[in-house]
């Protein structure tokens, strides 16, 4: 834990866009105190509180779990609550809204499309027959839990959508986080809804759009490995397709 010091400063070049006043975005430079233990979000809060209240952005938990504060920091998608100034000092830090999303204002992106895709993958347990609550929990061994646990850690911060060039070029692509979420439910021993997610995950806007750049997994702050989830689904999908080609295979 560093000693707080206010002598040193660091520059933040912040993306500004106020749709009511301007048609094109600009960058505004702010000089803020440099502190060893400050993150980019702390600097933004400092600006908002003491310098310029017009700067808009989303944040809440500032402990890397609510997923609100994802932004581009020097061109890389980051949770700003986990991006320390000390990793950039003494250079200026450029802060922009997440790319591959439309911008509402300043650092606030529009996430309608993401929310629509999230619902499309049916991210809930689907059962042919519900077990009554009185009969207790579904049994699930630690080994069965481990099968999908990693893919259940996604905080919906959408950094992976900003890192993925396919998302940027193909509007319909379901995208890394949502495909990983689909796998999370498909791999859950309690779930029987795979067929209902088939179209979204294995359809033409699903996994086959992915060219395995792998950056989604690199930028993921929670180690969800969406690229892994997608490659896994590709292998499964391919195997299933092969089976349908065999003389005794069945076409679904």
């Amino acid at each position: 834990m560093g000693t707080p010091t206010t002598q040193r400063t660091i520059k933040l070049e912040v993306f500004r866009y106020r749709p009511e006043e301007e048609d094109e975005p600009t960058f505004q430079t702010y000089e803020v105190p440099y502190r060893e233990d400050w993150v980019v979000l702390d600097a933004l809060n400092h600006i908002k509180d003491t310098v310029d209240g017009t700067l808009s952005y989303r944040w809440s938990c500032r402990m890397g779990v609510c997923g609100s504060c994802g932004m581009m920091v020097n061109g890389y998608p980051k949770l700003t609550c986990a991006a320390f100034l000390r990793d950039y000092y003494p250079n200026a830090i450029r802060v922009e809204p997440l790319v591959n999303f439309p911008v509402e204002r300043d650092l606030v992106i529009n996430m309608d499309d993401f929310m629509r895709k999230l619902k499309a993958v049916k991210p809930w347990i689907i059962r042919k027959k519900e077990q009554p609550l009185a009969e207790g929990e579904y049994r699930q061994t630690p080994a069965e839990l481990a099968q999908y646990k990693q893919f259940s850690m996604c905080i919906n911060c959408m950094l992976c959508y900003s890192a993925c060039p396919v998302v940027g070029r193909e509007e319909g692509f379901i995208g890394p986080a949502v495909l990983a979420l689909g796998q999370r439910y498909n791999l859950d021993s309690r779930d029987q809804g795979r067929a209902q997610r088939q179209e979204t995950i294995f359809g033409h806007e699903g996994i086959w759009e992915c060219t395995f750049v792998g950056e989604c997994s690199t930028v993921c702050p929670k180690d969800v490995d969406p690229a892994g989830a997608i490659q896994m689904a590709k292998v499964q999908g391919a195997m299933e397709y092969m089976k349908t080609l065999l003389p005794w295979g069945q076409r679904s």
Partner: peptide, 12 residues
């Protein structure tokens, strides 16, 4: 039943 990934005992 709604899918919360509770930690488990070896017997599930």
């Amino acid at each position: 039943h709604w899918g919360c990934p509770w930690s488990r005992e070896p017997d599930g």
